[in-house]
Design a protein around this nucleic acid. Structure first.
Length: 555
RNA sequence: GCGCCUGUAGCUCAGCUGGAUAGAGCAACGGACUUCUAAUCCGUUGGCCGAGAGUUCGAAUCCCUCCAGGCGCACCA
């Protein structure tokens, strides 16, 4: 609809230019907005204001010229007006809006889908937490954002894969094995001092106890290096399994789990660095190998091979991103905790040195979650074992409420998550407001069939012109904008726009519901309204599906 | 010290990339269940958009300078 309006304007402006009705100018991008105030029409354009500044003419006069030369071949415009400093306002005919209902009926669960992405291959990498402990509340936000961005991009026609990078080659994993060994010894009677670098959560004890019950005390005497590497493997696998289970129950699944170790197969990392050295992006100072990230705007160069000969995380990460591109992805999206933001220039330097466009790697920073209990900050540390796990949040608040909660804010805004409030307010959580709207509609549809014997109508059997109450027109117009909302959210990678849309759609529906009866003695009107609310339930359902939130039939 | 994010109603946050009178939810107050689900609806109160200058027809939005909070600034990941 928006596109039709801008096409009409463009045609008129071009015509006026040819006829020399307007002064010399070049045609700017034609902006069409939905005004905040409905008195200003269904759509409004500031085109005359834009042209006026270049042409040094009165904007209202320009608007008038454009208005007088407008053609409306499809006959969709009821009237236009010139308002304020020179806005051109458009009022669309009711029957045009009402046709949206037919589109929704035809497309059903596909309403809102588009081919914007053109099948382009995209990869979204997120969570990627080291398997050194269970996921905590801080990981949950990034998990939902990544998951929903994937759904969004899929909805608008991209071919999207979700990937989890398992960071299992560094010394943090080694510390994990060491921690298990220490607990193992402790459980077998030794007195143990735990170093700072070790993990102390109870899950470590569980793993150690499990090893004892299966294999006994044979590792007390065994070679320590081998034992640690063995225990690292055991612990890593068991923790990763737990992470996958937690994510699954949170509604998040992945297409690939990519192990950092794969990068080192066939000297992959070393070969990459060698090729970069030939291209002069890497230099040695005798002891360490440096990457010239300053060539790409970073504040200083970065180490890729340490004094001890080990490659850094950064070195592996360049290799990882090269691997991603080599798999044919045209766009790569990384979702990080905001505490990693300082790392961005480095990685961009890395992919540019490989010849890829900086724009091809989009990095979304998700601000950290500030965890509170009754207003008091809760200390969070994987190492000390003091944290609230994703599992606990799921048990306390539930999947739907937790997901919706994280999706209600822009990713880059800080988020306070108070456990007590989250629990207390779970009944007043906006997610229920939206779900309730869906359940209410389902209930009415059930009632109409079971109690009144009215079958679900099809579009050709209703008279859409009867749906002319203000609330009904608002609902229809609002639903017809759904595809634009999805497209906007996908383009800007901002899932929160959908939750705001949903809240508003639910709100308009609840108002309508309280003011008007769907099922009444007027059969013709009843049928039309049943069709209307069915359409609403489709839109609610489609949007909730993108969010990964359930749309219940009853509550 | 340098960099990134944030600052909008008492609280939590939107504000469609520069538009018309800045909006929701919660909280507070007053109303609506003999009715398709009251987990709902209707109404009232509440604002110097952190501060100051600038850009133009027009600024919460863009530029600059401050102030405040968060997070980074490793041969950790």
């Amino acid at each position: 609809m928006k596109n039709k309006i801008s096409a009409i304007i463009e045609k008129s402006v071009n015509f006026c230019a040819e006829q020399k009705l307007l002064g010399a100018m070049n045609l700017p991008y034609i902006e069409v907005d939905v005004p905040a105030n409905t008195d200003h029409g269904d759509y409004a354009s500031n085109i005359a204001l834009i042209l006026a500044s270049g042409a040094k003419q009165n904007p209202r006069k320009i608007a008038q010229i454009i208005q007088e030369n407008m053609a409306d071949p499809e006959n969709i415009i009821a009237r236009t007006q010139i308002a304020g400093p020179g806005f051109l306002n458009f009022f669309i005919k009711d029957n045009i809006w009402q046709q949206t209902l037919q589109v929704i009926e035809e497309q059903k669960e596909n309403f809102g889908r588009s081919s914007l992405g053109n099948g382009k291959k995209v990869q979204v990498e997120f969570v990627s937490a080291n398997p050194t402990g269970p996921l905590h509340i801080g990981h949950a936000r990034g998990a939902v954002v990544g998951d929903v961005i994937t759904n969004l991009l899929t909805t608008v026609g991209y071919a999207v894969d979700k990937e989890y990078y398992i960071n299992d080659a560094g010394n943090q994993m080694n510390n994990l094995g060491k921690s298990v060994l220490l607990r193992y010894r402790e459980l077998l009677g030794e007195k143990i001092e735990f170093p700072e670098t070790c993990y102390r959560g109870n899950y470590i004890k569980d793993i150690a106890a499990n090893v004892i019950s299966k294999e006994g005390n044979i590792y007390l005497a065994a070679d320590e290096g081998k034992t640690i590497s063995y225990l690292t493997g055991i612990a890593g696998q068991s923790i990763l399994k737990e992470i996958q289970d937690d994510l699954r129950d949170f509604g998040v699944t992945f297409d690939h789990y990519f192990s950092e170790k794969e990068l080192y197969i066939n000297n992959g990392v070393a070969n990459l660095l060698e090729s970069l050295r030939k291209k002069n992006f890497v230099y040695s100072d005798g002891e360490t190998l440096w990457f010239k990230t300053t060539d790409f705007g970073d504040e200083k160069d970065r180490v890729v091979i340490r004094k001890n000969g080990e490659p850094t995380y950064f070195a592996a990460d360049i290799s990882y991103h090269q691997n991603k591109f080599s798999r044919g992805y045209e766009m790569i999206i990384d979702i990080w905790g905001a505490d990693h933001h300082g790392y961005m220039p480095r990685l961009w330097a890395g992919i540019q040195s490989l010849g890829y466009d900086k724009e091809a790697l989009k990095i979304i920073l998700v601000q950290l979650v500030n965890l509170l209990r009754d207003g008091v900050p809760v200390a969070m540390s994987t190492r000390s074992g003091e944290f609230v796990t994703l599992r606990e949040v799921l048990d306390e608040v539930g999947k739907d409420a937790a997901r919706y909660n994280f999706l209600m804010r822009r990713s880059d805004s800080h988020l306070d998550f108070d456990l007590e409030i989250a629990k207390k307010q779970s009944n007043e959580n906006p997610v229920f407001y939206v779900q309730y709207a869906h359940a209410r509609i389902c209930s009415i549809l059930r009632m109409s069939q079971q109690e009144h014997g009215i079958a679900l109508p099809v579009y050709k059997d209703i008279n859409p012109a009867l749906l002319n109450e203000p609330e009904e027109m608002t609902l229809i117009k609002f639903m017809s904008r759904y595809p634009e909302v999805i497209e906007g959210a996908a383009k800007s990678l901002e899932p929160h726009r959908i939750t705001f849309y949903l809240n508003e759609l639910a709100s308009v529906f609840h108002s309508f519901y309280n003011k008007n009866k769907v099922i009444s003695d007027n059969r013709e009107l009843t049928v039309a309204r049943l069709f209307l609310i069915k359409a609403i339930s489709i839109v609610l359902g489609n949007a909730l599906k993108i969010l990964g939130v359930n749309a219940p039939d009853k509550m």
